[in-house]
């Protein structure tokens, strides 16, 4: 399975729609609730980063393999100046309009990293950012989750 979503910059009104659709498509494709939830969170944070920060928007690409799910979030600018700082929980450069809506907690990239088993980020100022997240698939454990959300 492969899904590709184009995300427009500053399109806050539609923020999260692609991620919710990705989660639904993964569930319909037989991905466990646990994995679909992790992928949904990764996709949401990536999608919102494209909306809030990117110059021209970008893409969220999802590839589903038998053992893993790969999510690539990519844009062509502006790029991240200090990646280590951007990965620090609580650090944010979100504009005021975004923080007023509850974004800019400085947890976006850390959330992507935490919900991934493999996480790579490449970014250069003026060129753009590419984030690759790999989620190792596992079956749901009813005894642990108690539900199928």
């Amino acid at each position: 399975m492969r899904f590709v979503h184009q995300i427009k910059p500053r399109d806050i009104e539609h923020g999260g729609i692609a991620s919710a659709q990705i989660k639904r498509e993964l569930r319909e494709g037989g991905v466990s609730a646990h994995d679909a939830r992790r992928a949904g969170i990764v996709a949401f944070e990536g999608e919102m980063n494209l909306i809030v920060y990117s110059v021209r928007g970008g893409t969220v690409e999802v590839d589903v393999y038998p053992d893993s799910i790969e999510i690539v979030v990519e844009d062509d600018g502006p790029g991240i100046g200090d990646i280590d700082l951007a990965l620090t929980p609580g650090y944010s450069t979100a504009p005021d309009w975004a923080t007023e809506l509850g974004f800019g907690a400085g947890m976006g990239l850390p959330n992507m990293q935490r919900n991934s088993d493999g996480f790579e980020i490449h970014s250069h100022m003026g060129t753009g950012t590419r984030i690759r997240c790999r989620i190792e698939r596992r079956e749901d454990d009813p005894a642990r989750t108690g539900h199928s959300a």
Binding site: G15, A20, M48, G102, A149
Partner: peptide, 11 residues
């Protein structure tokens, strides 16, 4: 509107 997506994704 974004709270709806957060609720969906989080379950």
């Amino acid at each position: 509107a974004n709270i709806v997506a957060v609720a969906q994704v989080t379950g």
